[in-house]
Design a protein around this nucleic acid. Structure first.
Lengths: 140, 140
DNA sequence: GCAAAAACGAGAATGGTTCTCATGTCACTG
DNA sequence: CAGTGACATGAGAACCATTCTCGTTTTTGC
């Protein structure tokens, strides 16, 4: 199940800021929230404001370079789309665990994989551009 | 890809309030937000406060009776887990469209199905209880 | 009935995200 | 070089869905 992010990438010409943001995400071993990125980049030689962080995260997301998922707490976590990670998320404490490999290739989740985790439900969502927005963006 | 919600259901003995909430979700043709449900039930003969709506939504979710997904806007939408719906979500305008059938059985999304929608990335998440929380809940 | 426990809800608090707008930056031009 | 316009930036305010607080009401167990 490969989402054609490369094909979807409209304009890979990133600004320095966008590149800085993307590299921070790629360098991180885990997903980062907007707040995390802000705190991280605050310490760099070229600090980035919170508004700019969110602005560019949305832009990168619309370009298919960054994916976003929401924890039960409502916090949004970002990661580069090149990482094909999937997670088990606890609806009680909100903790998440990365699955060792993409489960879509093995839909009947084996007991061993779950390792005690009790699945209650799943979500499968596709993010992208609807025809109306593609058309509007092309017209601009 | 059937999530064993029934097996996971710890205590299907719902209170009147929980039942009212679940029935409202089942009766609705679309997913509803917490605010939607509050507004809807406000007009019923037994109105429900916002705090109670969210309290029970979380409870029903932990029981695997209700699923929740987040729009790019951050708004959370709820639906009964018995409905196996999946969506295309636009990262620009946030609109969502229900897929005609569960795409997990047809992973290579056919062009016709997309109908002009440009997928940028997808998310696949499992929600449930981690071992620690199962243990803690069992102990209580 | 009656007391203890649980459920309830109005309104305040929380906190992540977005918006506003004044300022900064940069590429051009003449 | 100023001059100029378009765009990027960020501090802080605004927003708003959700959660928390806490006094009241309802239910439960006996």
């Amino acid at each position: 199940m490969n989402t054609p992010a490369t094909e979807a990438r409209v304009d890979p010409r990133l600004t320095a800021r966008q590149d800085q943001l993307l590299q921070a995400l790629q360098a991180a071993t885990t997903e980062l929230s907007g707040q995390d990125l802000h705190a991280l980049l605050r310490r760099s030689s070229t600090p980035m404001g919170l508004a700019t962080v969110y602005r560019h995260l949305r832009q990168l997301q619309q370009w298919g370079l960054v994916r976003c998922r929401h924890l039960p707490s409502g916090e949004a976590l970002f990661a580069p789309t090149e990482r094909d990670d999937h997670h088990l998320t606890c609806v009680d404490c909100g903790s998440t665990r990365r699955l060792p490999h993409c489960p879509v290739h093995d839909l009947e989740l084996p007991r061993g994989e779950l390792d005690g985790f009790l699945p209650l439900f799943h979500t499968l969502e596709f993010y992208g551009l609807c025809p109306a927005c593609r058309q509007r963006q092309a017209a601009q």
